[in-house]
């Protein structure tokens, strides 16, 4: 037990994490490509045309995984932030700031693909629906996190300030979600909800799950790449970075 603990903390230092992350990145890229191709093939080639929505529904193969990832990445980010505050590890802050842009991109993608789907289905690019609004607020939270971190020059302070913001945001997310929901029920009733769709064909579900897996792998690969650059930038004065860079030349 003790041994295992030591092993885990070994990879909490940038010096030992950097090479192992470098080794893992190509694998995650490969998996992302495999799952992506399979998911898109099932989504656009195999899955049947929806009876009510026609071909337009196929955007969900990108939309739903993007929305899932945008929410999940925020939780992971808050997890790293809490870990960084509790254990004062350098790597946690780096992971949190490496994840934020990916999460923001997914939140934006979810909104954008949702708008593309909403125009033919609802007849509007944007509706002040509970889900749309809370996803928009999530995007704002990501942008606030990124803006705060980039405004603070000292990386340690940026990490900790960002961590507090991420944790406050994560407390607020359920409140925002439910407040928006209750607020919305006053104004408009029904809207199309994917979770309540009566019957989803098995192939559709598979396509969506494969695409979600592809997005997962992509997120991990990109976050690790970004974390590696952040490591090099912040640790540029240390021996190991200098050794690494001179080796390459």
């Amino acid at each position: 037990m003790n041994n295992r603990l030591i092993n885990w903390f070994k990879y909490a230092s940038p010096q030992s994490f950097y090479p192992i992350a470098g080794k893992m990145i190509p694998w995650f890229w490969a998996l992302a490509a495999v799952f992506g191709v399979a998911g898109l093939y099932i989504g656009f080639g195999v899955a049947p045309t929806d009876a009510q929505q026609g071909e337009g529904y196929r955007i969900i193969f990108l939309h739903v995984p993007a929305a899932w990832m945008s929410m999940f990445i925020y939780l992971v980010m808050a997890f790293w932030a809490a870990l960084g505050l509790a254990f004062n590890t350098r790597l946690s802050g780096m992971m949190a700031s490496a994840l934020a842009p990916t999460g923001a991109v997914f939140a934006f993608l979810a909104l954008w693909t949702g708008a593309l789907w909403g125009k033919p289905m609802w007849g509007a690019w944007w509706v002040w629906d509970a889900r749309l609004t809370s996803e928009l607020i999530l995007l704002f939270l990501y942008i606030g996190f990124i803006a705060l971190q980039s405004a603070i020059d000292d990386p340690r302070r940026a990490d900790k300030a960002g961590a507090i913001l991420a944790l406050v945001g994560v407390v607020n997310i359920p409140i925002i979600y439910f407040s928006v929901k209750w607020w919305n029920t006053l104004h408009q009733g029904s809207s199309v909800s994917l979770t309540k769709s009566p019957s989803m064909a098995m192939t559709m579900l598979w396509g969506m799950l494969l695409c979600a897996l592809a997005f997962w792998m992509y997120s991990i690969a990109v976050a690790l790449m970004r974390a590696r650059s952040i490591m090099l930038e912040r640790e540029r004065h240390t021996e190991w970075v200098r050794a690494l860079l001179t080796d390459k030349e």
Binding site: L141, I176, S179
Partner: peptide, 12 residues
């Protein structure tokens, strides 16, 4: 920056 951080949290 303050407005960017605080306004989303004011929404509820």
């Amino acid at each position: 920056l303050l407005s960017l951080l605080v306004l989303p949290l004011y929404i509820p």
